[in-house]
């Protein structure tokens, strides 16, 4: 009986010792992971700083103007192109052959004739 108690106590002691050791190792791993993450965050922040400087360098108004002139068919905005009040926006043309076949456009296709419009649906709603 004594022997059983002694042996079981010894096993319990060894097991708990091993568990504590494992726990310790796990904690150390986590702590080291923590430190790695902290360092990574620091490095990333530094990289963000460099990237934001680079971004600002690559998107200066002068560069953007050059690029848009090179790649986009956009012209400088004119005062009369700016719409002040929603009232000046023209109504959407409906039921007319305003759209060529196959072309993509915001205007509804000519297939959408007024007779197909349901009665309770308002005609010519503003966009």
């Amino acid at each position: 009986m004594r022997k059983i108690v002694t042996i079981s106590a010894a096993i319990a002691a060894i097991m708990s010792g091993v568990m504590v050791l494992l726990l310790n190792i796990a904690v150390q791993e986590q702590a080291s992971l923590n430190r790695t993450l902290a360092k990574q965050i620091h490095d990333d922040r530094e990289a963000i700083r460099i990237l934001s400087a680079e971004w600002n360098y690559l998107t200066t108004p002068r560069t953007l103007e050059d690029r848009s002139g090179q790649f986009l068919a956009l012209m400088p905005l004119r005062a009369k192109q700016i719409v002040n009040t929603p009232a000046t926006i023209p109504l959407r043309p409906r039921g007319q052959d305003v759209d060529t076949k196959g072309a993509s456009s915001v205007v509804l296709s000519s297939a959408d004739k007024p007779r197909k419009v349901k009665k309770n649906q308002r005609k010519g709603t503003a966009l």
Binding site: L37, A38, K39, H42, R49
Partner: peptide
């Protein structure tokens, strides 16, 4: 108490 501080840039 175990908070890891990220070293500031």
């Amino acid at each position: 108490k175990q908070h890891v501080t990220v070293p500031p840039v």
